[in-house]
Amino acid sequence: MKKIHLIGIFVIAIAIAVLMSISGDVSTYATFDQAIQSGDRVKVVCQLSKDKEMVYNPVEDPNRFTFFAKDDNGLEKQVILLRSKPQDIEMSESIVITGKMQEEAFVANDILLKCPSKYKDEEIQLKREQKGS
């Protein structure tokens, strides 16, 4: 057997081992229900409940921002983000939060916003609007 074949087998073996271990880093996007049941750290895709209150009071704690969000099944939960309030969250289409359920609220320390592009809304701005502002 040639060395190159040995190396090949070796590389394939490592590749399989690594790919198997990657599966440990992978998860499906969870819903709030699943987050409650598993109690694990998960990613949840949700939408901001724009009618509910968002609280960010940095004088008290600059690392705490709370809001309400609905997951894809329509279940609404309070989310406590242990960070400062992300910019433009009001404009987000969907939100991906990473964290886990703690009692009644979802405590997240990572957030990704999906915002509609500024250029997608094809509203024509008129010159006089500019004057008014």
Partner: peptide
């Protein structure tokens, strides 16, 4: 199919 994703990109 349920979409899958890497939980924490950086450490991964």
């Amino acid at each position: 199919h349920e979409a899958i994703t890497i939980k924490d990109q950086e450490p991964h």
